[in-house]
């Protein structure tokens, strides 16, 4: 579904991604793990069209979307839940969800998706008239996910959804990620919480200072000594 080949991305003269290649098949959950500053968010921003790569290819369902404007990438079916939620704090929960469906015109489908999102996150329905800025961190994460789902994406990019959440909430969020995937949405999950990420993902990539250094199935990576010491806090 997504096939990235030799992607190079720069901020000025600083190279943030160095020849990144990565593949995601339809229906999978793939996780990308790496330390702070490794380039995870940069990769997601480049896929979404917020940053233009210097070169390399990003094939989404066979079409090269590298360097396209964000709008057309959303239209093709790729949505992102950005790092730090980035909800529209001065707007209500409902308005945030409406904005998620900004490019859609199928009123009926949008109404169905409101139902779906409210079923997935009952908390959001209770608070639909509340300003998003007054929600708790966990609720904002749910809103950011709901908002991305409102575009009815086929590929969902999640940037550190567990960041700053209490362990119980992290569990809930990961359960919901699994549920979203079960209903047919392919997922690329960026995480620092490698334990949790590997528990839901089919496959994983490890990124270090802009380079993919390892990839394999979640089981393989769970077994790998290198990963256990560096990312799983194991021995």
């Amino acid at each position: 579904m997504l096939n990235i080949q030799n992607l190079n991305v720069y901020y000025g003269n600083i190279q943030a991604l160095k020849g990144v290649s990565l593949e995601i098949n339809e229906g999978e959950i793939v996780t990308l793990i790496g330390a702070n500053g490794a380039g995870k968010s940069t990769l997601l921003k480049t896929i979404s069209g917020l940053i233009k790569p210097k070169d390399g290819e990003i094939l989404f369902e066979g079409q090269n979307i590298a360097g396209k404007v964000a709008q057309s990438i959303v239209k093709k079916g790729v949505s992102q839940v950005p790092e730090g939620r980035r909800v529209f704090a001065n707007m209500t929960v409902e308005e945030n969800l409406e904005l998620g469906a900004f490019l859609r015109k199928d009123t009926k489908g949008i109404r169905e998706d409101f139902e779906k999102v409210y079923n997935l996150f009952p908390r959001l329905q209770e608070r639909r008239k509340q300003q998003a800025g007054t929600l708790s961190g966990g609720e904002q994460q749910m809103l950011a996910m709901g908002r991305a789902l409102m575009a009815r994406p086929r590929l969902l990019l999640l940037d550190e959804p567990s960041m700053g959440l209490a362990p119980l909430l992290v569990k809930t969020i990961f359960r919901i990620i699994q549920e979203i995937n079960d209903t047919g949405t392919t997922i690329l999950l960026v995480e620092q919480n490698a334990n949790m990420a590997l528990s839901v993902a089919d496959r994983a990539y490890v990124i270090e200072t802009g380079r993919i250094v390892l990839d394999g199935t979640s089981d393989e990576l769970n077994q790998s000594d290198q990963i256990r010491t560096a990312y799983l806090g194991g021995h």
Binding site: Q71, V74, K75, P82, V87, F88, E98, L99, F102
Partner: peptide, 19 residues
């Protein structure tokens, strides 16, 4: 709504598909 979204967070607005 697009105007309010862009004024609050331009990149987040782009991720919604707002021009």
């Amino acid at each position: 709504k697009a105007m309010r979204a862009v004024s609050h967070d331009m990149d987040a607005a782009r991720l919604m598909g707002i021009n």
